[in-house]
Computed example of a mutant assay.
Amino acid sequence: MRKLSVAACVSLALLAPQAAQAQNIAVVNGKPVPKARVDALIGQATKQGQPRTPELEKQARDEVVMREMFMQEAERRGLAASPDYKTQMELARQTILIRELFEDQRKKSPVTDAEVQAEYDKFKGQATGTEYRARHILVEKEDDAKKLIADIKAGAKFEDVAKKNSKDPGSAENGGDLDFAKPDSYVPEFGKAMTALKKGEMTQTPVKSQFGYHIIKLEDTREAQFPPLAEVTPQIRQRLEQQKLAKFRDEIRDKSKTDYKFSQN
């Protein structure tokens, strides 16, 4: 019985270094490099969207071992005691801790499906009305606009004239097409002239705005379109999260006692 106990102890003693070694990926100048560092580095990469692959794991192990080598050299030179290092370490500590604070708050006060639905309904209600699909040609001089209007009346295609002459880089290549939009998406002069047109009509005189002179043709109208909830849920959720965190930030600032005056409220 005693011999069995001794054998068991010997076995445990032999296994102990192997267990410790399993927790480390290398030894650099006598100092173990823990596997936990690799796991942390891979965790950061996967959070940012990188897939966990054998190549990523190899890169993480290489990086962790190299970091240990650099750290040891920096410590050998006494850089850890420098004022600049201590200042940067304090700033890094604050940054990490603050990030953890807001992440903790985000988890404790998540955006609910009901909140997303309410925000969606609010924006959808504001999106009612008529949308207009127009084409336009933008030029710098009124006389140029008048000449182009005459050319179109004489039989030139609006789209071809726009491609050749319009100074609007966003629409010229598409024959002046501006797609569907509400009148208030444009400068007031443009919106007013556009809504006065019937489908297929073109402005008979140049429309002046801060950008130059416009020739406008109304292609079509429709009731305002709004994307389905599923399509915009990620954007709405992100917006609401940002609003909640901003409120949390302001609450902490307001309840804190300080003689400091912030430049913005």
Rank of each mutant, 00 (worst) to 15 (best):
S11N: 10
S11Q: 14
A13K: 03
A20W: 15
Q21T: 06
A22H: 10
V27I: 06
V28H: 06
N29W: 05
N29M: 02
G30N: 00
G30M: 03
V33C: 07
R37Q: 14
R37I: 10
V38T: 03
G43A: 07
T53K: 04
E55D: 15
L56W: 03
V65P: 09
M66C: 12
R67Q: 12
L79P: 14
L79S: 13
A81G: 10
P83Y: 00
P83D: 13
Y85V: 15
Q88D: 10
Q88I: 11
Q94K: 13
T95A: 15
T95P: 10
T95Q: 14
I98H: 07
E100S: 11
E103F: 00
D104I: 14
R106A: 14
T112S: 14
V116M: 10
V116A: 11
A118W: 08
Y120I: 15
D121K: 08
K124T: 10
Q126K: 06
G129T: 12
G129V: 00
T130L: 09
T130Q: 09
E131Y: 00
R133D: 00
R133M: 00
A134V: 05
R135K: 09
K141A: 08
E142V: 03
D151T: 03
K153Y: 04
G155R: 01
F158N: 05
F158C: 05
V161R: 05
D168K: 06
S171E: 08
L178N: 07
L178Q: 09
D179C: 04
A181D: 05
S185A: 12
F190N: 03
M194P: 04
K199G: 01
T205P: 15
P206H: 05
F211I: 04
G212N: 14
H214T: 06
K217A: 14
K217G: 09
L218S: 05
E219C: 00
D220S: 02
T221C: 09
R222E: 01
E223I: 06
P228D: 04
V232M: 04
P234S: 04
P234C: 05
Q235R: 10
Q235E: 13
I236K: 03
I252T: 04
I252N: 13
D254G: 13
K257L: 12
N265K: 05
